[in-house]
Design a protein around this nucleic acid. Structure first.
Lengths: 148, 148
DNA sequence: TATTGTTATACTCTATAACTATA
DNA sequence: TATAGTTATAGAGTATAACAATA
């Protein structure tokens, strides 16, 4: 069981591999976004919830969870925190009392507006070295990958 | 300088946000790659280690960890598994006996060659709906983001 | 004293299973 | 029976701190 002296005939630079690039790009954006949102008392995951609620009609917990691609049990703890902070409310759906209707409070809407600004700034920093054209292309490519 | 709108906010579709797209693209590629590598008895993280070892001269555990961006304590368990499987060896560096020199075995090189094929196929599936031009552009953009 | 590898530990994140209340 | 929310628990994954060997 000898040890080979490596002859990197066709080995790609580890930093060129898509998996590496995607992982570290995600990490970088999350770090930037969390830092930008921190003064508002929320993080990027909380912002995801707020975004869904601001974009949709008031939705059930399950609908929010499915939109974000997280488990419904994960959603519980996420909403617990946001409810305690006063940015969302939960009330039973009169039409189906098994469901909770989740809504933004007035304060939640203000937090969301401020968070949108902070988030956009974080994205701007993230994309500082990327041309507007390449940015549009990046979004388009990722969207076609995720949606396929 | 950002201005907070007091108007009803124009909320972007949650699925258009870069953070969402990057997270789910990463998840999709990892799932595809893990499935493709599974018959070889390794996963995408193991493949990352093999890739570093095949690309570089034999390296210390710390160097491998830093190249991959993981903690040195994480590297220990990763290498334990790969050593038990016979694809890498650890031996003390004669020049500095605090270090372990990590190398691919002959079997490890064969596993790596097969893994490269499997990995490329997984990437091909991942990029099935993306043109070659957009693929090159995607890599270029991500690289400039990660390296900045 | 500092560094490398190691171990033990804790902490985060998320998923699974079981429970409740409603349908 | 099935579904939405909840709770408890367990499993990855990773990071922090302390230790042994070596520099």
């Amino acid at each position: 069981m000898g040890v080979v002296s490596t002859e990197p005939s066709t080995s790609p630079d580890p930093h060129e591999v898509l998996g590496y690039l995607l992982k570290h790009a995600t990490l970088k954006l999350t770090t930037l976004t969390d830092a930008a949102l921190e003064p508002l008392g929320i993080d990027s995951k909380d912002f995801g919830v707020l975004r869904v609620l601001a974009h949709r009609e008031p939705a059930s917990q399950l609908q929010v969870a499915q939109t974000l691609g997280v488990d419904r049990t994960t959603m519980v703890a996420l909403l617990d925190v946001l409810e305690r902070k006063g940015v969302i409310t939960r009330r039973p759906d009169p039409a189906d009392r098994r469901r909770n209707v989740v809504s933004l409070t007035d304060q939640g809407l203000r937090v969301y507006d401020a968070a949108q600004v902070a988030h956009r700034q974080a994205e701007d920093v993230f994309l500082a070295g990327v041309t507007p054209t390449a940015t549009i292309q990046l979004r388009r490519t990722l969207r076609s990958i995720v949606e396929s």
